[in-house]
């Protein structure tokens, strides 16, 4: 284990200390406060709160919803990035700017707009209802909101990598007789895979913590469409601070494990790329 690595920039120790200090002040201390607050209550109470049926149902919805939305974001996000990098078309600069809009919009606005669109008599919902598809006030609505929020993360992660990718590699592959499919799977995808993982991890993390845009479209029905962050807020409104922080702690640990997993996957693919 090397502690110090040579770098072109001087000042390893100041930089390292600042990183450690920053992570401690801004990330670790507030997060440990969560755990400290949680343990002010008895273990029995905490266990009862975090294992209550409606809370467990909310973990399921929050994690499954974020995973599905993350996957959709990866597929669609890659496509959007591809179009923005590889094609020239009128209004491209506008489309490029539009991608970032979900970052800037207050999430509640997004939630209200999506709800209006997808309710039974909304612009989109009225065409889906006869088909038997209900979006607003169902888990599907949660996925829609989280995809809206997650998409820019994937696009913005993949776009620069795709722009930097050497097109000569593709031409070389083609001249060596590779089919289009082979070029995609064996040349392009390995290059963008780490970026896709990054985008996925960001979208997933954001989805797990998302509150504003989801609570409007989800309907918040117990056991069916309550997301975990809503239950945290709901516990606070019932003055159950310890219970709220206990759920938050579960959320934190699970999210951290999930993100570690995604990062490990990403490292593996990068190593694969480097040894190639």
């Amino acid at each position: 284990m090397h502690f110090k690595r040579p770098s072109v920039l001087p000042g390893f120790w100041p930089a390292f200390s600042y990183t450690a200090l920053y992570l401690t002040l801004v990330v670790l201390i507030p997060l440990s406060a969560v755990f400290l607050k949680a343990v002010t209550s008895s273990w029995e109470h905490l266990w009862r709160v975090i294992s209550a049926p409606n809370v467990v149902a909310s973990y399921r919805l929050s994690f499954a919803g974020s995973l599905v939305a993350g996957l959709i974001s990866v597929l669609v996000g890659f496509l959007v990035a591809w179009v923005l990098v590889r094609y020239e078309f009128p209004g491209k600069a506008l489309a490029d700017a539009l991608v970032d809009l979900p970052f800037a919009l207050p999430t509640a606005v997004a939630g209200i707009a999506l709800t209006s669109l997808y309710t039974e008599n909304g612009w989109v919902g009225r065409y889906l209802t006869p088909l038997g598809i209900k979006v607003a006030f169902t888990p599907l609505g949660v996925v829609v909101a989280l995809t809206f929020i997650g998409l820019p993360f994937v696009v913005r992660s993949v776009q620069p990598v795709l722009a930097d990718a050497d097109r000569e590699l593709e031409e070389a592959a083609a001249s060596l007789g590779a089919t289009r499919r082979q070029i995609f799977w064996r040349v392009i995808l390995p290059i963008v895979r780490p970026a896709l993982f990054t985008g996925f991890a960001l979208a997933l993390a954001r989805g797990l913590g998302e509150y504003g845009s989801v609570i409007f479209i989800s309907g918040n029905l117990p056991m069916k469409t309550e997301i975990t962050p809503l239950l945290i807020v709901s516990k606070l409104e019932q003055y159950d601070y310890a219970g709220a922080t206990a759920i938050a702690a579960v959320m934190l640990i699970a999210s951290f494990a999930l993100l570690l997993g995604v990062n490990a996957l990403q490292r593996r693919t990068r190593r694969f790329l480097e040894t190639d």
């Binding site: 049926p53 117990p222 219970g243």
Partner: peptide, 13 residues
């Protein structure tokens, strides 16, 4: 928590 409203929504255990 665990009251009648929870029971109505099947949250009871």
């Amino acid at each position: 928590d665990g009251g009648v409203f929870d029971r109505i929504y099947g949250v009871g255990r």
